[in-house]
Amino acid sequence: MDQDSHRTAKAEQRLLDLCTKMLSGECSYIQGSRQIVDLCLRAGMAPNDPDRSTFVVIESETDDIPDEGVVKLWSVEAIKAKSEEWTETEVWAKKTGEQAAMNLQKRLFRQ
């Protein structure tokens, strides 16, 4: 296996793992989408792949929500003030991205 094939296979495995975690509830759709957008390209998918495009939409619509690492730096009061909004947005992200995550998972299991 050449180096490019190895990178592609590694990206596909990370993508499969991430989709599985999102579908099982172990990973947020908001946080997962941010990784999936790049991983799809690394896995050799077209930039306009319909499943990838779904995660681009989620990423774009949630770019005002900080990453988990950044939230850890926030005060408890600030987190409480935003938690309801973030929960509602996560529900939307799951509803929007669940089918795309299932599609990617199916595609990657076949490979």
Rank of each mutant, 00 (worst) to 15 (best):
K72T: 06
R42T: 02
E98S: 02
E59H: 14
A11V: 01
D63F: 06
D4N: 12
M1H: 09
D2V: 07
Q111T: 13
G69A: 12
R14L: 15
A11I: 01
H6S: 08
T96I: 02
L15F: 06
G25P: 08
W86A: 00
K95S: 10
M45Y: 15
E84P: 02
K106Y: 03
E88H: 10
S83D: 09
Q31E: 15
V56Y: 10
Y29G: 02
M102F: 12
E12Q: 15
I79N: 02
S33L: 10
Y29V: 13
F55N: 07
E77R: 09
L104V: 09
C40M: 14
R52H: 09
G32N: 05
A9R: 12
V91R: 03
S83Q: 11
V70K: 11
K72M: 09
Y29I: 12
Q35P: 01
L108K: 00
T20V: 08
K10H: 12
G97W: 08
A11T: 00
S33A: 15
A43L: 08
G44R: 01
E68R: 11
F55L: 05
W74A: 04
S28H: 05
D17R: 11
R34M: 02
I36C: 09
Q35G: 11
D17N: 13
V37Q: 07
I65S: 00
R34V: 04
D64V: 13
W92L: 00
L39D: 06
F55P: 11
E12G: 09
R7N: 13
L41H: 09
G97K: 07
V91T: 06
C27M: 15
A46D: 14
E59N: 14
S28E: 01
I58C: 10
G69W: 07
N48S: 06
A11W: 03
S28T: 10
R42E: 15
K21C: 06
C19T: 02
A43R: 09
S28C: 04
D63W: 08
R107P: 04
A78Q: 14
F55T: 15
V37R: 06
Q99Y: 08
F55C: 07
M22D: 03
L104I: 13
I36E: 11
D64K: 09
D38L: 14
E12H: 08
M22L: 01
F55R: 05
D67L: 13
W86R: 01
A46K: 12
S28G: 03
R14F: 12
E12S: 15
T8D: 10
G25H: 06
K21W: 11
